[in-house]
Nucleic acid binder design. Structure first.
Lengths: 363, 363
DNA sequence: ATTCGTTGTTCAAACGTTTGAACAAAAGGC
DNA sequence: GCCTTTTGTTCAAACGTTTGAACAACGAAT
């Protein structure tokens, strides 16, 4: 037993020596641990990863020394060697939209659990910035990319680059079929049906639509849904009631003013975005038009303010957190078996209409 | 000249050979470029970085081949070797607060310009998550960390770890003096003065304060400012008018109800957060109390909804984007000369009161 | 006693860059 | 023409891991 004590003493000596060196400056590496224990770096690496071929005794010892030397694995080195960076890039149009930040929050939470870190980049709705972001993410050697397209984006070359690299690409909310990758979003076509059905049920007959730009798939689908739903109810399509917009508050106001100049007022406005809906509400109120009595109003996305103002705005809830969670899960599926390319997974959720005062004509 | 043509032909042959190999799979490396041009990887590396000792001819050739082979530098390898990852970690309490997402947006924009990428992590106001985030960032070998404390955080050991590592740490908005690092934020003490001065000017004499928790520096300062400002105006301090809150909408409602039970109503409420202010507004309106005539109301942070509802809520604007920009600049200063430790830089901006209907008693 | 399979570890190469030092060749100074 | 500088490039090591293969030691099975 004396021998064991001596051994222990020696170990401590070595440990102290190392502790001192390390205190001075440099970070601990796997090599330091190896030196202290007089084993090789590979053994240490394996011990830390619970490799079955390493004895429990060694594992214990390694972990103890690692703790004492305050060892922090260098992910860069690990990533370089193993080819996995454990980083996932997210491209989001803007984080200060509640919908997007909720989605991102869920994605982050879900991926953190699996040991991935998340790099968030914003395109600010600019095609150019989107390209640069993706370039930067690829250079950082992310293990995959999760993206939602900027409004401006109509060319998809940069997404092809991602696919060429062979890393998973998942799109959410704003996606395009042409890109041919997994997608998670809501059923936009169906959403419009739900909205129009509701408005018709409230007795509306002249329903205007402040739409997003039709070159974006989701807005196009909402427009199609709007038209088909009207036809379904035998309501004639009036061109002047369908306006494309960038869906900002400002443009919502502008488009509403345009509607007010029509010889015959609409009795409902369905805006493809909450900010545009708010703009509409402001203009209507400024013109002494009562909401919902004169004009019913429905927005889209369930931004928090819609429930805070008066009258509260009816809107479409897109299951923000569920989308984020599904995106993350889809990513994990793809990463777990790389060559499982066979079929794309498009997950289309049903959106949910949240009826508030702004569209309740009937009690 | 024939020789030159032949050379060119050979180069193209080699290029094609490489193109083909690369099409099959693997990514191009510096080594591939070197092989094509029959020079060494080091020459290539230097050429790509415009090293002065490399001839223009070589530089041109290298860059051309790099382009043709679609070369993407591997940042991991570069980071590992050079010790600089060009990644900056950001810790933010929640991204779906407008203030924080604006700050982050500015930071990102500013740092992108300098070639840095940004890893955003959210603490969700949890001390535990904050620790784990910082741990993860350190393991990813970020070049620096920019953080704002979670509400829960009152122990700062994890920040000491960052300092030990010797990488820059910058705090913004929610910081603590004890941590002893650069800080950018607004003058909270002064802000309360501005708010109180304004309310007094409107004729208010019983001003309530729904405050944040006093263990957080910024809220403590606002409380101090509130008290000193009242004293300055010879208004007595009434304990029951000062309530600590977590500043959510819900708690804002609760605290306001508490105020309504007092024998004598306040004639103004100053809330340290906009959501709490909104809660107050709701409760006041539900009880038939007119804002601002009966009770004036001021919030804090200038969340977008404050200007959207009716009455619009007066609030304090914190120069969101300016803070972000200054944070980024401060980080760049620190990174540019690591050993320039001498003195901390605390940048304290003056906040700006935005007066809206909710606090305009006088015309 | 020989072979075989396990167990625990070491060896050495690899991941893709960067970088100080060394070196050769060309240019410049006398 | 000789020595010195400058210019352009190569050499080799390094960054901190991971990983397949090799190896030694040992007990078990034949």
């Amino acid at each position: 037993m004396l021998k064991k004590q001596l051994e222990y003493l020696h170990l401590h000596k070595r440990l102290n020596k190392y502790s001192n060196i390390l205190m001075m400056q440099k970070k601990t590496t796997i090599k330091d641990i190896a030196n202290v224990l007089k084993i090789t770096p590979s053994a240490v690496s394996r011990a830390l990863h619970n490799h079955p071929r390493i004895s429990d005794k060694t594992k214990k010892a390694v972990k103890k020394v690692a703790l004492e030397l305050n060892y922090q694995p260098n992910q860069l080195a690990s990533a370089l060697r193993s080819g996995r960076s454990n980083l996932v890039g997210i491209v989001v149009p803007r984080t200060n939209s509640y919908f997007f930040s909720s989605v991102v929050e869920s994605i982050e939470e879900e991926l953190n659990k699996e040991g991935y870190n998340v790099i968030i980049t914003q395109s600010n709705e600019s095609y150019d910035k989107e390209c640069r972001n993706i370039e930067a993410l690829l250079q950082t050697q992310v293990d995959g990319i999760i993206a939602s397209l900027a409004n401006e984006t109509i060319i998809f070359d940069h997404y092809e680059r991602i696919k060429e690299k062979g890393i998973p690409l998942i799109l959410y909310d704003r996606g395009e079929n042409d890109i041919g990758v997994d997608y998670i979003g809501i059923d936009d076509y169906q959403s419009s049906h739900i909205v129009v059905d509701h408005l018709v049920a409230q007795g509306c007959k002249r329903i205007a639509h402040i739409a997003g730009y039709s070159h974006t798939r989701i807005y196009k689908n909402r427009i199609r849904g709007y038209i088909d739903a009207l036809l379904k109810h035998n309501i004639p399509i009036v061109d002047s009631l369908l306006l494309e917009s960038n869906l900002t508050l400002k443009d919502g106001r502008a488009k509403t003013k345009q509607l007010l100049e029509l010889p015959k007022l609409p009795d409902a406005i369905y805006a493809s975005g909450d900010y545009a809906a708010l703009g509409a509400l402001q203009v209507l109120q400024e013109n002494g038009i009562r909401v919902p009595q004169d004009v019913a109003l429905v927005g889209f996305s369930d931004e928090p303010f819609t429930s805070l103002i008066s009258p509260a705005i009816s809107t479409v809830y897109q299951h923000n957190n569920k989308i984020g969670k599904l995106v993350a899960q889809q990513f994990l599926l793809r990463i777990k078996d790389k060559n499982w390319k066979p079929k794309l997974n498009k997950i289309i959720l049903d959106a949910e209409l949240i009826v508030r005062e702004s569209s309740k004509k009937k009690k």
